[in-house]
């Protein structure tokens, strides 16, 4: 019984999907990071870039349904970044350091964009992995 659904599910691999996602994968990653790093020049920012990064987890899992992504560890990293998101403005913005030193201003914006981007990317990725793809594609993928 334990092998039953797995055989059925993993048999359906599409070569077109694999090739296209493999080609697009680095470009999605580059685009996500460029959106994050250009956060204070363009309408995008941390949240938008993070969402693009989160789609990487989904793309990877659709192509290679290997359950080696440890969602607990990703969640731990995400909590660490959330602590930094609270600490960095508390140390820099609310104390008035950014208002006093002009050189720190764009550095602070970039730092916050990176922190928020990684946090949102990990968060949405963990959410989708945990919720939609739990325990193998075959178990839940026949929607």
């Amino acid at each position: 019984m334990s092998d039953v659904s797995r055989d059925v599910a993993y048999g359906e691999e599409s070569i077109i999907l694999k090739t296209m996602v493999g080609l697009l994968y680095p470009f999605i990653m580059l685009f996500g990071f460029s959106v994050i790093l250009n956060g204070h020049y363009t309408p995008g920012g941390g949240f938008q870039g993070g969402a693009v990064l989160a789609s990487l987890f989904v793309a990877r899992f659709v192509v290679y349904p290997v359950e080696d992504t440890d969602s607990e560890r990703l969640h731990a990293v995400q909590r660490l970044f959330l602590a930094l998101i609270v600490l960095a403005p508390a140390a820099l913005l609310f104390t008035g350091v950014v208002a006093r030193y002009e050189a720190l201003r764009s550095t602070y914006l970039t730092l916050m964009d990176i922190l928020i981007g990684v946090q949102v990317g990990l968060g949405l990725g963990v959410a989708v992995l945990r919720f939609a793809f739990f325990h193998g594609v075959g178990q839940t993928w026949h929607l």
Binding site: G39, T42, G45, D113
Partner: peptide
């Protein structure tokens, strides 16, 4: 020092 008002408001 942001070029975009939205980023300056958000961050």
């Amino acid at each position: 020092h942001a070029k975009n008002a939205v980023a300056s408001i958000l961050l």
